[in-house]
Write a protein that binds this DNA or RNA. Sequence first.
DNA 1: ATTGATTACTTCAAGCTTAAAATTTCAAGC
DNA 2: GCTTGAAATTTTAAGCTTGAAGTAATCAAT
Lengths: 156, 156
Amino acid sequence: MVSAPLSAISKDSKERLRLWIRLLRASRTIEAELRERLRQEFDTTLPRFDVMAALYRAPEGMLMSGLSRFLLVSNGNVTGIVDRLVTEGLVTRARRNGDRRTSMVKLTDAGKAQFEAMAAAHEGWIGELLGGVNEEDTRRLAAMLQSFRSNWEGRE
Amino acid sequence: MVSAPLSAISKDSKERLRLWIRLLRASRTIEAELRERLRQEFDTTLPRFDVMAALYRAPEGMLMSGLSRFLLVSNGNVTGIVDRLVTEGLVTRARRNGDRRTSMVKLTDAGKAQFEAMAAAHEGWIGELLGGVNEEDTRRLAAMLQSFRSNWEGRE
DNA sequence: ATTGATTACTTCAAGCTTAAAATTTCAAGC
DNA sequence: GCTTGAAATTTTAAGCTTGAAGTAATCAAT
């Protein structure tokens, strides 16, 4: 098997570049719309919502580093967002007996209640925003993106 | 034709939610990698790169509002990024005779040269990062995202 | 020509984000 | 016990981002 001619390589990379640009524009467009609605309807932000969503899936709580890894953002970033959520009474930081470096971050009852309201609305918004994508395409697209990520994770 | 039962609606929206989450994670993963490489290799940032890319496509220059619209970011945001690019000598703001509210933003020769170097590397990176997606999927995915956006634009 | 609305842009305050440095705690090995 | 290194988190400085308020120029229509 010989390597592809230069022209074909270049053509492929242009094709992938186009894909990347569209992927980016789609996600920015949706993100902007979600941010706007979260602000209008719930007076909150997307990063706060993301943190609460992560915590909701983990009733026993999460470490700061766990949140950082899961949300794909830096450590220091999570500190600030959680600080503000604590101030708002939606989240608690519980120092642990075992390891005093870490703290378990959990949703409060108020946090849970607020998140449930937001999550319902959020799911509806996504359904609306992605309404133009039919069911088969939705599945296919999701599967492609999944396999892209598995590929990716292997190499890091 | 009757409306679908509630359970089906809910199933669809869960499916679309999953798609959105994967879309978001894919684009964040790629963005993080690009940001890191732009920093390491060219000592610059993704927003600066984005502005320069937009300007490169417009040799005659762009208005601030044009940049803002094209990049899907707020007006005030562009001001700061262009300010910094001007300081670095990569971009100029030329007040226009016709309409003194506006200014034409252009790449300088240095800006053009730097962008060409970055663009070549960038295209290679994307080719590498999306290497796991075969050519047919690339095209199909790009087409789906395109049609999603056209749908979207119609309703705004 | 004057008024009033609109357009283009900048400024501002608050919050988000990162990378790097600093802090505190833990875990081993001696 | 002490030291050394690693791990979890916070702090810091710089930059990005937004929405809203402010400034200035233009346009429309009398």
